[in-house]
């Protein structure tokens, strides 16, 4: 029985997992708090985690009907993420483990995302054993990266964004359009009523041989387009067309580079997770492309796309089962921790 805590950005989450089953997964989102600022304010996120953490952990323990002293291990996200946010979850988890005399593990947030597409069912369970070699797309407001997963706890980073993450690009373009934060879901909704061929925007690094991404140029292109076409913002259909066109540009890059990486890596599975994976356009396009390429696809369920402690717990439990030793209770947060194998903070 393992308790996991996730506080890497603006969601406070706690989960209890046992032998690959998610007994509880409680998430408190701070989106409403940050909405008026148009993005996550790190200082406010840290304050909110401090207020929310204990009720969320108690709720997770309560839903799992577990008393704290029945926990066998504790895990928390160690990085990457916002320093002040990571600190709250990590220190609380370490102290809980210390007070109970239980092992503690610090988990890489992205490594956990590699396994979140394999959590499904009711109650949710990890179904990734044996792990199928796959190429995994992790795409969110803070990160966009591709990794090759060779097997359980064995992965390599293929590429990542050189500047803005895809979700960040959605949010910044949404801000240009006057949409509320977070803009990704708004753009996704408006895009369904728009013509994705109406406007042409660049597909950055689409033809680049690397597995890297770059979205800041696309955002700038939209900014200049709106500067040159200011009346567009008064036309509801034009806004919908713009959203559809922007979304298509972002999705095409994400999908094409993911499929190409899978082909080159000679794997037959593709997985995707991270908050942007909730985007309907992306989910459809990945499904279509994978079918065409005869690749099997696993998309994280929406609750496991966004930040959640269940995936932290699932990975921590696997690591302990595979013999990883408990970590030093004085291990510090690792805000810039890279996903590359062997990369330690």
């Amino acid at each position: 029985m393992l308790l996991a805590i996730e506080t890497s950005c603006d969601e406070t989450s706690a989960a209890v997992v046992h032998e690959g089953r998610v007994l509880s997964n409680v998430v408190s989102s701070q989106t409403a708090l940050h909405e008026e600022y148009g993005g996550v304010v790190p200082e406010l996120a840290a304050r909110e985690h401090l207020r929310n953490l204990m009720p969320i952990v108690r709720a997770a323990l309560g839903q799992a009907a577990i008393a704290p002293n029945r926990l066998e291990a504790v895990a928390a996200t160690r990085g990457p993420g916002l320093p002040g946010a990571l600190l709250v979850g990590l220190k609380a988890a370490q102290a809980l483990a210390f007070a109970l005399r239980r092992p503690w593990l610090g988990i890489h947030h992205h490594e956990a995302h590699l396994y979140s597409p394999w959590i499904s069912g009711e109650p949710p369970s990890a179904v990734f054993l044996p792990v199928q070699p796959n190429v995994s797309l992790i795409v969110s407001g803070g990160h966009t990266l591709l990794a090759r997963v060779n097997g359980e706890l064995d992965h390599e980073l293929l590429g990542g964004t050189l500047d803005d993450a895809a979700g960040e690009c959605f949010d910044k373009i949404g801000k240009l359009l006057g949409l509320p934060y977070p803009a990704g879901p708004q753009i996704d909704r408006l895009a369904r009523e728009g013509n994705s061929s109406a406007y042409s925007f660049p597909r950055p690094l689409l033809d680049d041989a690397s597995d890297d991404f770059s979205f800041s140029g696309l955002k700038t292109s939209v900014r200049y387009f709106l500067r040159d076409h200011p009346r567009l913002l008064e036309d509801g259909q034009a806004i919908r067309d713009l959203c559809a066109s922007v979304q298509r540009a972002i999705v095409e890059v994400l999908v094409a580079k993911t499929v190409r990486a899978a082909r080159r890596a000679r794997v037959s599975w593709v997985t995707a997770s991270g908050g942007v994976t909730c985007n309907q356009g992306l989910r459809r396009a990945l499904a279509t492309a994978c079918t065409a390429e005869q690749l099997q696809l696993r998309l994280a369920e929406k609750v496991f796309c966004t930040d959640n402690a269940a995936m932290i717990g699932i990975l921590a439990e696997r690591k302990l089962a595979r013999g990883q030793a408990a970590m030093d209770l004085c291990a510090d947060i690792a805000p810039g921790w890279a996903l590359s194998p062997g990369s330690m903070p």
């Binding site: 953490l53 220190k91 609380a92 809980l96 210390f98 007070a99």
Partner: peptide, 10 residues
């Protein structure tokens, strides 16, 4: 946070 974790346990 350390105190919160300790209190959750004990």
């Amino acid at each position: 946070a350390l105190a919160q974790g300790w209190q959750l346990a004990t």
